[in-house]
Design a binder for these strands. Structure first.
Lengths: 252, 252
DNA sequence: GTGACTTTATCGCCTCGTGAGAATCAGCAT
DNA sequence: ATGCTGATTCTCACGAGGCGATAAAGTCAC
């Protein structure tokens, strides 16, 4: 509603080129159902701004260097402090699971650090920058569990609740019950809800004022999680405390 | 000229936020001299599109996840084939210098792979994605030397010829002479022109049709380059040949 | 040179962006 | 509570400039 058509078009073009890898003017016009001359105009403006480049040999447009610079800038803005990385690494090693650190940002929670190895790889979709499917990930649930009801509704309505596995919780009432439990227990579990046969757990990290500012999490095959819940929970709470202490004071 | 004001404004806002790391609406308005209500409108459109996020606690806007996705997409588009990386790594090891691979893209040459180590670090500004200052870098000269005069003029006029060190060639006639020599010799040298006390060399890489498609390069402190020019040149030509052969055939 | 395609130029219509100004909201100190 | 300050949103009338059907020009392959 009430959005500038130009801006939407410009970004839809950028994204069309991005997902295609490279695209001709005509391909973009067809795909987005925008008249050709208009597409050319916008493509050229994007090219002038260095967000696109034109490969004249192949008559194709591709993403330009400015896109990479934006990505870099985003990344630099979210570098995780060394002590937090250390704590996450140590969690990874001691539990023998992939470990993650995620941080609040606006109304989202973004994965900013992964610690894994060949033997205990991270879940494929979980890389730096991941912020989707909050209802189906352990650290996403931490975010949701701390939200007031109306904000949670808004959040979930805006992004939807995708069905990722048969176990994904998609009924809103069930999710609310589940999140209430997460909030009281101070730990979020997720079994086969994001990826089949994979289990995750997350615990909130707080800053000096006691506010949740992020979460520390682990993932492991569900087969290796059974019988270790107590151990994992203790390890997570332990490391979350260390992170919170660092964010509170600086010194350990 | 004759550019859409909206589009320029949108991207200048995006870049203002990017360079500031985070910025309030008022700061953006002041910096770009755009009236406040307009800035708010555009900021919100960018927010709706997930190119910005609004941190309500701090009343600040920052780059959103879509920016990172664009950057990722750009990066994935330019991944260097494994054999080329191997050749560059091997060059790095055998010469004891940082080594680089850069590729043509549109009218630019973009650095797509760096091979370095603690002992032989790359030049700081040269990271993946680097494409500036073609007149002052060895692989940039490779690009320029292969351009017809009018195209070269256009290129240099568009980006200017920044003075980076006292040795940087900024007189167009001198550069043309220099590039003519680069073209005939098939190797580009750069001594203290990009960074003081640092020397680079680059040799073109060709594809099956004999067209230059990129360059392989090295950098080293100028003090360690003297007396080794022949050795470096041979090593570079050697590896460039391997790269070209790979691009020509696939098999080694 | 011919045909199929890509890219640019033209141009009047009319949308839709624009920004001054004012109202509203949010936070904070008194 | 009560102002006070600064951030944010709303309103609205003007007119710049985006839009796209159409057509012309360029480009390339065979």
């Amino acid at each position: 509603m009430s959005n500038s058509a130009v801006i939407n078009r410009v970004f839809s073009i950028l994204e069309a080129v991005s997902t295609s890898g490279s695209a001709s003017a005509k391909a973009v016009a067809d795909r987005l159902e925008i008249p050709l001359p208009t597409v050319y105009r916008l493509l050229h403006e994007l090219e002038d701004a260095s967000y696109l480049v034109y490969l004249s040999d192949e008559k194709q447009f591709e993403l330009g260097p400015k896109c990479f610079e934006l990505g870099l800038s985003f990344q630099q803005r979210l570098v995780v402090p060394f002590p937090i990385r250390q704590i996450t690494d140590e969690l990874h090693r001691s539990l023998g699971t992939a470990a993650y650190f995620a941080i609040y940002r606006g109304s989202d929670i973004i994965l900013t650090y992964c610690s894994d190895c060949e033997k205990h790889p991270r879940l494929r979709p979980l890389r730096f920058g991941f912020h989707e499917a909050a209802h189906a990930t352990a650290f996403g649930k931490i975010l949701l569990s701390a939200m007031p009801a109306n904000q949670r509704t808004e959040y979930l309505d805006a992004r939807g609740m995708q069905v990722l596995t048969p176990q994904t919780i998609v009924r809103r009432d069930l999710l609310d019950d589940h999140l209430a439990e997460v909030a009281t227990r101070g730990i979020a579990w997720e079994q086969d809800e994001f990826l089949p046969r994979q289990t995750c757990a997350a615990v909130p990290v707080r800053n000096g004022t006691g506010l949740q500012v992020g979460a520390i999490a682990v993932s492991t095959p569900s087969s290796r999680a059974t019988g270790r819940t107590k151990e994992i929970e203790t390890a997570l709470r332990d490391r979350a405390g260390l992170c919170s202490r660092y964010l509170r004071g600086g010194i350990r």
